[in-house]
Each structure stands twice: as C-alpha cells, then as structure tokens.
Design a protein around this nucleic acid. Structure first.
Lengths: 226, 226
DNA sequence: GTTTTTGAACTGACTGGTCAGTGCAAAAAC
DNA sequence: GTTTTTGCACTGACCAGTCAGTTCAAAAAC
C-alpha cells in the first residue's frame, strides 16, 4: 500500500554484512540470501516506523518474498528483529575493536585510539544509517522482549571504549579522575548524535569533514582562537 | 492486561510541567488537570513500549479516566502525542535559555554558559526521564505523522546551544574553525546519552557527580595526570 | 443548567501467525 | 539417461484476535 507500483527491490536497503556465507562452509546459500533480504527490508522499515508499526506483510513485500517465507526463516517477528540487532551490533563491535587494535599496533597513543574509534563509528553509521537509527530508538526502552539481548550487545560495544579509557588511565595518559563508564557513554553519545544529525540534516558533507569536527571536540581544541 | 491488579495510578509518572495553569489565566482547571493526568500516563507508557504498541485503553486506565474522556480532550491518539511532544520540548528549551541567560547576566564565560546548559539538560532528564527516552526514540524517525512537529521543536532546543557557540566564536572565546551545527549536536548527544545511561544503569549516582564528569570532558580536562 | 466525565457497547479495518499445498533441483531407482 | 522420489524452500489465502475511534444516555461536577 505504501510504496506504489514497482515490486522490484528498493535498492536503498542497507546491507548488514555477510556473516559466513561464502568461503569454506557451504551452508545452503539460498536460505542465507533470503534471510539477508529480510534483514535489509526489516532494518529500513523498522528504522522509519518503529517495530510495532511495521507489519510482517510490509517486510515480506519489501523483501520480495511471501509472508510465509518470513516465518519459515524466523520463529516470529520479534526473533527476526533480535537477530538483526545481534548481527548489526556485532559488526560495530568488531569494527571498533579493529580500530583500537590497529592503532595500538601502529604505536599510536590512546587518544589516537579514541580518535580511530570515532572514525570507525562514523564509518559504520555512514554505511548502516538505518540500523543505527533503529538501535538508538530501542536502546533505552524497557519492558520489551528483546531488552536483554539489547543490553548484552550494547555492553559489548561500550566495553571496547571503556577498555581504551582504562588503559589510558593506567598508563597515565588520561586523568585518573575521569569516570570511565560515564565518559565512555558520553563519547558514544557524541558520535551517535552528531552522526545521526549529519545523515539526517547535512547528508552532503563528507565523512572526513565530520570526523574533523568531532576530533577537535574530542581533543579539547575548541577554546582559543585556533 | 499488562499491569496486574491495582488500577490506582502508578505514582511513577513523570510530571510534565504546568505551562500556564495557575496564576493569571483562569482557564478551566478541571480539564487542564485531566489533560495533565493523560500526559503523565501517556509519557511513561509510550517511553516504555513505543507509540504504536501503546493503546488508548492503557493510557486511559493508567490515567484513571474513561476512554471517552481521552477523546473528549484530544482529537486522536496522535494529537495527544504531538501535544505532549510540543509541551515537553518547550519546557526543555525554556530551561536551556534560562541557563544561558543567567550565566550571561552573572558575567560568566561562554564555557560557563555551556556548562550551565549541560547542567540544565541533566536536571531536565533527571526530572523527566521518560519524556527524554521517548523523544530520543522518535527524533530520527522519518515518515511519521508528527515528524514536522518534532523537527520544529528540536530546532528550537538545539538553536539555543548553537547560539551560545556562535557568540563564543564571535567573541574569540571559541576557535572560529569549529563547526557550530555539528558541535552543538555532539554536545547535545554527549549529555543525552550520558544522562540516559546514568538513569538506566547507575540511577543511584547524584546529579552533581554526573555533571562533574561531563564538565571535565567538556573542558578537555581528560588528558594528563589530573 | 452547563460543562465535563463516564462506561459500556459497537464497528470496521488491520495484523501476527498458521497451514495445506506448490515448485524444483538433486538423489535414487530403474 | 530416463523416470521417480525426496525434501527443502517458499507461497498466499485464511483465521482469530486486537485496536483506534464512535456513539450516547446518564451521572457528576461546577
């Protein structure tokens, strides 16, 4: 009903990784491809309308499969959403960890690591804006079926930032008076909101541009003539 | 269905100000009181479950009024929600503006003004956590009925922060290379996410404590032994 | 007596989930 | 190498339940 005529896939969809499709494990490719299509369809629809307002019929239609196929691949609407959540945050966490480790490997400081993670976060949001949107919208809700799942994956992601902060404190690079947990949350929020604003209201700007602005803030280079 | 027996108001509800109830304008107080009860009921329920998942019956029950009363006071579920949104953000905006003006009146710097606004933000979130939750969950959604309303009120609030940043740049207190719009968004995000984390995961901590942590970050007092 | 609230019944549209059946490619049987 | 069987993946009409919104007579509240 919403989208008029063309039933051919919308192409705007956001790909959420490939898990372990090709290479070694043969695993039925057909099913995996269908699941992927369903993820892509669900992520944009739920980001736009929210979980409850998005119908399974819509997801199926957008993915170009029958409704029954959704239930053949996922136990329920909630399960589909939960797996989508787990999958997406898994990618983000891996990306953050990579950024931190690579910086360390190259002998960078902890601030460099933080900066690299800010960039990794921006790259992720740039690639999967709909997923990010959906994640933020659900994160602080309570009393929902997937709450525990959400908490687990959130903690995995935030822990990476906290880890770098703690190392920085231990190594004397950061003040030992900082509140690691709260600072980590604040940093995540900084990137999250700035990036969502970027995508929503100034999508034409480059990632480097946005990254530069956040770097400045991160390193306290705001005060002064510059 | 959800809450078991007790129909007597839950008391957890978040009061969303009083706008212009008392004082000069007499205005039928009775109706206003009913509206207030409906706001309180709606804000917590929608924060927890989302708009679509919250039924009008639930709202009425939680508010302790009949369903007909909801429709006597508001044209529709959406309208109730929109007015709630406008009302809440109006309060926040006023609070931020107050903080900035008061700092200026007392001869504080722009950093002081920013700091005061961070505190004002924390106070607001401390007082109306459910509203904040709901606001964040809806802010970046698209294709929804109240999208335009949301954009308007968002801009009002962010503009206050942007204003202070611009004044700071003009007065030479801030680098003229900062990106006002993006920096404002990042600051808002910093406070928003840190505060929601505070309320969700460390609710026992004091506001001053949280404010101190954010102040440190804001003023770049993170690096160094401290 | 006017305004506001009540509360229960009703409607019509919509939605998550089900299930009997279809299509088809590879394996098995011949 | 042709025919038959198998079973995975998918289909889409259908059902039972839910919900926003309506209606209205009667009761409260002012």
């Amino acid at each position: 009903m919403t989208s008029s005529s063309g039933p051919a896939g919308a192409s705007v969809a956001v790909r959420i990784g490939t898990m372990e499709s090709s290479s070694t494990t043969g695993g039925s490719t057909r099913r995996e491809a269908t699941r992927q299509k369903l993820y892509e369809a669900a992520v944009t629809l739920i980001a736009e309308q929210g979980f409850s307002a998005t119908t399974v019929d819509e997801i199926a239609e957008r993915a170009g499969v029958a409704k029954g196929t959704v239930y053949y691949n996922f136990a329920s609407k909630s399960v589909l959403f939960e797996e989508l959540l787990r999958h997406g945050v898994g990618l983000l966490t891996a990306s953050l960890r990579d950024a931190a480790e690579q910086t360390a490997r190259e002998g960078g400081s902890r601030v460099d690591a933080l900066d690299a993670m800010v960039r990794a976060g921006l790259v992720f949001i740039d690639r999967y804006p709909a997923f990010t949107q959906l994640y933020v919208a659900e994160l602080w809700r309570t009393n929902r079926a997937w709450q525990s799942t959400l908490m687990v994956v959130r903690q995995q992601a935030v822990a990476v930032v906290e880890g770098v902060l703690r190392e920085g404190v231990a190594g004397g690079e950061f003040s030992d008076e900082i509140d690691v947990q709260l600072t980590a949350a604040a940093l995540v929020g900084m990137v999250l909101v700035a990036a969502l604003d970027w995508k929503s209201f100034q999508p034409e700007r480059s990632l480097d541009d946005v990254h530069a602005a956040l770097s400045r803030l991160l390193q306290g280079r705001v005060s002064g003539k510059g």
